[in-house]
Design a protein around this nucleic acid. Structure first.
Lengths: 64, 64
DNA sequence: TTTACATGTCAAGTTTTATTAACATTAGAA
DNA sequence: TTCTAATGTTAATAAAACTTGACATGTAAA
């Protein structure tokens, strides 16, 4: 699944570690999600989307 | 995490098995999600929400 | 060039999500 | 009441998400 985390994070000038801390996961987890190595859990997806003030569908792009 | 699956499913007159088949998971998985025993994965949440023509946030209620 | 910070990646382990199979319970129709 | 479909629940297992720790690379500033 694609996602817009890298762009949204850049807009906020946040490092992966900043985001990880705010979301409550490890830096490696943010890196892996960002690079598409796996999908976040639903609660993690909710927290990420909320931090960026976006609906989940605007951050994570599923299928079509 | 709360969800509105039971109500949305009732509106469509779908059984748990109908929904499970459409989503591509087992009936027990739908039952467990519906009863809040665990949260679906993000891809599963996307498929459920799309089947009901709703954004994820309208089907799954996180926090608040 | 060296220092410092950000990112990439890997291995090994834990927790969570999802599976199949089996059986119990509930509710409604015959 | 009896039969049947739907739902509830449990056990054992597999797969995916996430962890810590360690180390490599990239990039930019001193």
């Amino acid at each position: 699944m694609e996602n817009k985390i890298r762009v949204l994070r850049a807009e906020k000038n946040w490092t992966q570690e900043d985001l990880a801390g705010a979301v409550g996961v490890s830096r490696q987890t943010i890196n892996a999600i960002e690079k598409g190595k796996f999908d976040p859990s639903l609660p993690t997806a909710f927290r990420i989307a909320r931090l960026f003030g976006q609906p989940i569908e605007a951050v994570f792009l599923y299928g079509d």
